[in-house]
Design a protein around this nucleic acid. Structure first.
Lengths: 163, 163
DNA sequence: TATTGAATATACATAAATGAACTATATACT
DNA sequence: AGTATATAGTTCATTTATGTATATTCAATA
């Protein structure tokens, strides 16, 4: 039935050996891992024809989510959840492909500005319809009300981190 | 305030440029990415003193979740969500560290059985208290009822994949 | 029983991510 | 001004993950 059932069975075995292991929290964590993996894999499959992988897509979308289509590498690292060294590598690739442009800042010459090129914007316009379809597909089992509920609960859970 | 607020701001910008982009589904997907990253990072930090990373921990726990503390590589790959080539590498490491033993199967000699050694079990006993504490910490913002609700919704969402 | 096909595990080459210096610029303090 | 401290970004070595090809074994069947 569900692909998650074996995970719950393993959890039962674990709890038989180690009764303190908390079922609820463990299930939630494993569900999130499973969902992340599914989301990640499906997005990767969709993006492959465009010559992009998931991290590259993320970077393009972070830039697209900025009013002027541009960000500094450190902000980008923060937004995309990548290490700054990785941002350098990924944005270099995107520059080489012509989707992103690097330019220096006048006010602070340490800073670098990364901006979507017209080609980058065109690429985004190209894959966004597929992404929209995918997003709807990935949440199709939830009603609008359930999506709202889920959003509230996930935000609440996330707020408990890093304190 | 919330570390998630900038993500929502970016989403608003995106929707201004591309109105079809579905807010609810996109928020859910990004929340799951954020949560996964936090969970992953915190677990890694906890496990580092034991000389383990998250995938290695996962493998140990999958074996521990089996009644006889053992599994075949392909089942392990499935359970841990890793590619089988990666399972070979990871279990080789764990064998070298003495936490897992490889042995051939009598009935089907293609198969290899991976089993937790006494040292592996002792290691698990060593880190499990910390894991239990971490799991409680990661879900502390949710009441028991909310955890149940969240579990139901996540399972429902997960069921929509791969059909 | 010999042969083909499918499944399993691994080896090897390639790609991606991380962590620890390193360079250059900016800010703060005396 | 001059020195220390902090920050931005990159480079490089190492670790980690993935994809492809290969070897081994079992099952089916001619």
């Amino acid at each position: 039935m569900s692909a998650f059932a074996p995970t719950e069975a393993r959890l039962d075995v674990t709890r038989a050996k180690y009764p303190d292991f908390p079922r609820g929290p463990a299930v939630l964590v494993r569900l999130i891992k499973h969902l992340f993996k599914e989301i990640h894999d499906e997005a990767n499959a969709l993006l492959r024809p465009y010559g992009l992988n998931h991290p590259e897509y993320n970077i393009l979308m972070m830039l697209y989510g900025s009013p002027d289509n541009s960000m500094h590498p450190s902000a980008l690292a923060d937004a995309a959840g990548e290490k700054s060294a990785n941002i350098t590598r990924l944005t270099t690739q995107l520059c080489e492909k012509g989707y992103v442009a690097r330019s220096g800042s006048d006010t602070d010459r340490r800073k670098v500005t990364l901006t979507l090129t017209p080609e980058g914007l065109a690429l985004i316009d190209g894959f966004l319809p597929g992404i929209v379809t995918l997003l709807h597909k990935q949440t199709r089992n939830l009603t609008a009300g359930e999506q709202d509920q889920l959003e509230v609960l996930l935000k609440k859970m996330l707020a408990g981190f890093g304190e």
